[in-house]
Design a binder for these strands. Structure first.
Lengths: 249, 249
DNA sequence: ATGGTAGGATTGTCCGACAATCCGAATTGC
DNA sequence: GCAATTCGGATTGTCGGACAATCCTACCAT
């Protein structure tokens, strides 16, 4: 048995992970600020005293975490960024592997969306309203293409969530949205009239948020989400159906 | 100007990303099943016709996504896994960079936790109840160590969420939890009596879930979350205070 | 059968190299 | 003098090869 504790367990973590942690720590503690360019790979390798290949592996890790990304226009350096929507993809992927059912997605939406709509109505700015209106318009436009319609529906929810100005809610709702998109394919294919109902609900929600009528916004969002469920039932889709990944384009 | 559209934009994605996507696709479409070992790096490199270094970069990406991981006991091969709790860390990290406030975390908890408690009471199995009871007991035991207490509080919420058997809710609640832990440090430090109140609320919630009294579970969870807010106010913490990363051990 | 050992396979890390690209500065043209 | 062009350096993406450490497997000895 261990009579005396003299030695701490030796860290067996691979170097690339420790490099990643070191950089990540600098980002989290704000030593490296958002938008700042990281040192070059060679530079980092020398600073850490490791090979460039090792640094690159660490960078890939940070990149997929969303902590760093290539500069937008130029693909040169790497800059620090908030892990905004990058995470949504990963989360959705993970969820699809958990054999999520339509009923589960619906339950989550039912919990989250009405309060989100309420908060959005209370706190929305003019810019938020414009974004939401825009999202609704986008949906109204591209109803022919199912893939575009699916994306537009998610975009609408997303815009409403952003209006709450609460990143925790935005990220909390992201998983449900991500999976919803995959499940909508079935629905929109089989129930054409669902598209109209969705547009209808969006119109009411937009109006309520515009008038900053929190109660009404919540109510209509509730109906909107409830409608999805009804749509699935009408489409003859078993609510315990396991959602498959969206078809690739 | 572009008179006719003849050419699609050529994919300029780096190879390591395309390799990652290819593997990821095989995992999502279940060609590679959970727990299965991936081919060796050299093998993959030959199959894809790229260098091993490139494959490694792709693997790092998948690893941090949670799609693959080292075998538990042995660190040999890489196996496919569901991205369970790996994601929580990343999400929390991202949130801390968004300058989240106590008020925002609280709002999210207030939205999510009561319905979760309700659903948990309705659907919990015997095993779920045991896990929840266990989590509450863990909190009751380690109240001296603040870090342990913080973790235990999160563990309790986590156990309750698991009892809903809804991965979407579990993942949706993860971000809030992650950030809550960081914010609790301040609270527990300044308001010792908060610890007792937390234990008290947990006891009531456990009892309600045990009796499968959904309404009561929801009610007590509401009080529990509301109590956090009161605690922050009592501690003299500005609710708009930006939550800092938890102190390292 | 138990125990131990030799080989092979695999991962983590390193070195060096090269094409493609981008940034910026020097050079050239008007 | 100012603008456009060109050239060189810096940086990234990818490749090839290499080696120690470790783990698995199968074989061998007691």
């Amino acid at each position: 048995m261990a009579s005396e504790v003299v030695f701490a367990p030796v860290s067996t973590e691979p170097t690339y992970r420790r490099v990643a942690s070191a950089i990540s720590a600098r980002i989290v503690d704000r030593t490296l600020e958002r938008g700042m360019a990281l040192p070059s790979e060679l530079d980092l390798a020398q600073q850490f005293g490791v090979n460039r290949s090792t640094v690159r592996e660490a960078l890939r890790e940070l990149e997929s975490t969303g902590l760093i990304a290539r500069g937008k226009g130029t693909r040169r350096m790497v800059v620090a960024e908030p892990g905004g929507d990058v995470l949504a993809d990963r989360i959705g992927q993970a969820l699809l592997l958990s054999d999520v059912t339509v009923a589960q997605v619906w339950e989550a939406l039912m919990v989250l969306q009405p309060p989100i709509a309420q908060a959005a109505a209370e706190r929305r700015t003019a810019a938020d309203l414009a974004a939401i209106t825009d999202a609704a318009a986008t949906y109204g436009r591209d109803q022919s293409d199912p893939a575009a319609a699916m994306a537009a529906i998610a975009g609408f929810f997303s815009a409403v969530a952003s209006a709450t100005h609460n990143p925790v809610l935005v990220l909390g709702q992201a998983p449900a949205l991500q999976v919803l998109v995959s499940s909508l394919e079935l629905l929109l294919d089989r129930i054409p009239q669902a598209r109209v109902r969705v547009g209808d609900a969006q119109t009411h929600i937009v109006a309520a948020i515009r008038d900053q009528d929190a109660g009404l916004a919540r109510l209509w969002m509730e109906r909107h989400v409830r409608d999805f469920r009804r749509g699935f039932v009408l489409a003859g889709i078993d609510l315990d159906y396991r959602i498959a990944p969206a078809t690739r384009r």
